[in-house]
């Protein structure tokens, strides 16, 4: 299609600079995510589907970003790339200052373990394990000893106000509680980004609001949150909304707080 669309609109100068600089230098610790020219194609029975056709994104630490777009816009593909579940065919992806786009499967597994907390639409808890055991799981793969694991998993469950239901299995919990367990599991290894894929897709509107409050609270405490959703009222909770269409970024809008504007200004002056 139109080649000009691949020149993605970036909202601030600093972001533009971050993205253009990645080719030369590693982005600083200020950026949770810097992605440049991400492309991903799938072979669907002989037909090549170009799911992402050159996406540039820069997400600062502590940002709360929603990624929207109609189905087929490439938002799931982008989420998989951001979540290090997949690698791009072209382009560079820096996560928390590390180039991850060329990593091997096992290296990616390590990055997922350390840097990314997943929250899924279908919660994806292990059905036979208790809430506590589910939350402990990332720590198991991180090689944390059982006592520390237990303590940290408890703490994470208490953060999502599920301290009393630790020994319940997923089928003994409500949808909202399950998603809270999933959030606790995502947070337990102190990841760089919390990556949520339609986190309220299987919840009623009241529970959805509840979960959104949890996300806002985490964001207020400095957690970088990236959320993929197709519901505008859910996306409205985020402070920045990136809309994808046909494999490229269509719009990237932010509701900047005064503080954020100030730091953005500061960094653009200093940088």
């Amino acid at each position: 299609m139109n080649n000009e669309i691949e020149e993605a609109p970036l909202s601030t100068t600093a972001e533009r600079r971050a993205v253009t600089q990645v080719a030369g230098v590693a982005p600083g610790q200020e950026w949770a995510i810097v992605a440049r020219g991400l492309k991903r194609e799938y072979d669907m029975g002989g037909e090549i589907v170009r799911a992402l056709r050159g996406v540039d994104i820069a997400v600062r630490r502590n940002e709360y970003v929603a990624i929207m777009g109609p189905s087929g816009s490439g938002k799931s593909t982008l989420m998989n790339l951001i979540g290090c579940l997949d690698t791009p065919d072209a382009g560079e992806y820096w996560l928390n200052g590390t180039l991850v786009s060329d990593m091997s499967d096992d290296q990616l597994a390590h990055v997922r373990n350390k840097e990314i907390g997943f929250v899924f639409q279908t919660f994806n808890l292990l059905p036979r394990s208790t809430a506590l055991q589910n939350v402990e799981l990332p720590l198991v793969y991180a090689g944390v000893g059982s006592e520390e694991r237990r303590a940290r998993a408890k703490e994470a469950l208490e953060r999502v106000e599920l301290g009393e239901r630790m020994d319940h299995r997923p089928n003994e919990l409500s949808g909202g509680q399950r998603q809270r367990v999933a959030i606790a599991r995502a947070l337990v290894n102190r990841p760089a980004i919390l990556l949520a894929d339609e986190p309220t897709g299987n919840l009623d509107s009241r529970t959805s609001e509840d979960i959104m409050r949890v996300f806002s609270g985490l964001s207020d405490h400095g957690q970088t949150v990236i959320m993929v959703t197709h519901e505008p009222d859910i996306a409205a909770h985020a402070r920045r909304v990136i809309v994808l269409r046909d494999g490229v970024v269509e719009t990237d809008e932010r509701k900047e707080t005064f503080h954020e504007r100030l730091t953005a200004f500061g960094s653009s002056v200093v940088g």
Binding site: G83, L85, A142
Partner: peptide
């Protein structure tokens, strides 16, 4: 899938 997403390597 969940285990892999949470950081399980192939060998795990």
């Amino acid at each position: 899938g969940v285990r892999k997403a949470l950081g399980a390597r192939r060998q795990d």
